[in-house]
Nucleic acid binder design. Structure first.
Length: 113
DNA sequence: AGTTTGACTGGAG
DNA sequence: CCTCCAGCCAAAC
């Protein structure tokens, strides 16, 4: 069927940015979610990489629980070893391979917005 | 205006 | 479980 040639207009990019931060702010303590889930929830399922970009470079992200965002396999962000420490301090358990036990801690947005 | 770069994901080996 | 590769897409070169 049809593909989705959709391109983000500057307006949409701005909305996406805000939505991402809004969702991250609602991740409960002791839980984690993934880039893909956030992207899908913001309405752009193919933009998981952009979610990572926002959390990495947006100034506001510094004062948010962005450490509660990991990839789909429960892997923590490259080059940010403190992320694991932060998560463990709020009760998140890791498996032997160093990944978050997603089965136990993955959280999904429900009634946001 | 073409190429490279990732805080991603899914699949293959 | 690991690495590598292709597809992904806006931003940075």
């Amino acid at each position: 069927m049809r593909d989705y040639p959709d391109r983000m207009s500057p307006q949409q990019a701005h909305t996406f940015h805000d939505d991402v931060l809004n969702i991250v702010n609602q991740i409960p303590r002791g839980s984690v979610t993934t880039y893909g889930i956030i992207a899908a929830w913001a309405g752009w399922p193919a933009h998981s990489r952009m979610v990572g970009r926002v959390l990495r470079y947006a100034p506001e992200a510094a004062s948010m629980p962005c450490h509660r965002v990991v990839n789909k396999e429960g892997r923590t962000a490259p080059g940010w070893s403190q992320q694991r420490v932060l998560l463990e301090s709020e009760g998140v358990s890791f498996k032997a391979n160093g990944h978050v036990d997603m089965q136990r801690h993955q959280w999904e947005p429900e009634e946001i917005k």
